[in-house]
Nucleic acid binder design. Structure first.
Lengths: 124, 124
DNA sequence: GCCGGGTATCTTGCATCGCATGGAACCCGG
DNA sequence: CCGGGTTCCATGCGATGCAAGATACCCGGC
């Protein structure tokens, strides 16, 4: 997806990420602290959730503002120091809460999209 | 989910609906035209996508503005006339496009949420 | 004839979120 | 000293869900 791509597909995908990106970022921190560019790279590798710095850093600021993550500085051998983000108790609770809500949401959307497919064998 | 419920769960679910609601509404019109309250009721029965009139009617206005749906008035025996919304060719194309994008998105989120659970059998 | 309840549609103002753009600081090799 | 790579962050815009309120139609009871 090129920057500046304004196709309908790109617009649909962009709106899809709303609200989900936050919890995917939290999920990435579940096992160990991560830093900004690392998160950006991990999201990019997933394909569907690829995004830019202008999305991730404001998101991380919101997470820090709401006490869902805590940060520590750590020096790097190949560049400026990195700010590592780690889950707080509240952050882990929010992630668990989302993990509970997500399947219901996902299945509901699946149900709408696959409902009443004009199946050739349907003679109701 | 009561109106005015401001729990974390409600907030997460609210943000989740962004961008998805539009295509679920289009999906509901796939087989036959529907009217506003009917759509509202169908979304409510799904549970996870329940919403209010203040969300559905502006959404329907946008869909009409973008020529994704066409509307016709039809009288009702038990109230004011209903405006029925039907998919246009563009609307059907947008729905098909979303149907193609959604599985990749859904699986990507699933992958992040279920990745690296400290499974007891994992001895890597 | 009038009035209240149920049905149905729509508008306005607000808060939130993803994104493009731009800027700043640090390290290293030439 | 200087250019490239790495890392961080802030600002302004567009799109979207939502609560609250307004309007109009039908019917039955008084």
């Amino acid at each position: 997806m090129e920057p500046g791509d304004s196709t309908k597909q790109a617009r649909a995908a962009a709106q899809l990420r709303k609200g989900v990106l936050e919890y995917c970022v939290l999920a990435l921190m579940r096992d160990r602290p991560r830093y900004g560019v690392e998160l950006l790279h991990a999201l990019g590798e997933s394909g569907a959730l690829a995004t830019g710095q202008g999305t991730v850093y404001p998101l991380l600021s919101r997470l820090r503002r709401d006490d869902l993550v805590a940060t520590t500085w750590q020096e790097s051998a190949s560049g400026p120091p990195r700010r590592y983000y780690a889950l707080t108790d509240s952050g882990r609770a929010a992630l668990d809460e989302f993990t509970r809500v997500w399947p219901g949401f996902r299945d509901a959307v699946d149900a709408f999209l696959t409902a009443s497919p004009p199946s050739p064998g349907d003679h109701s």
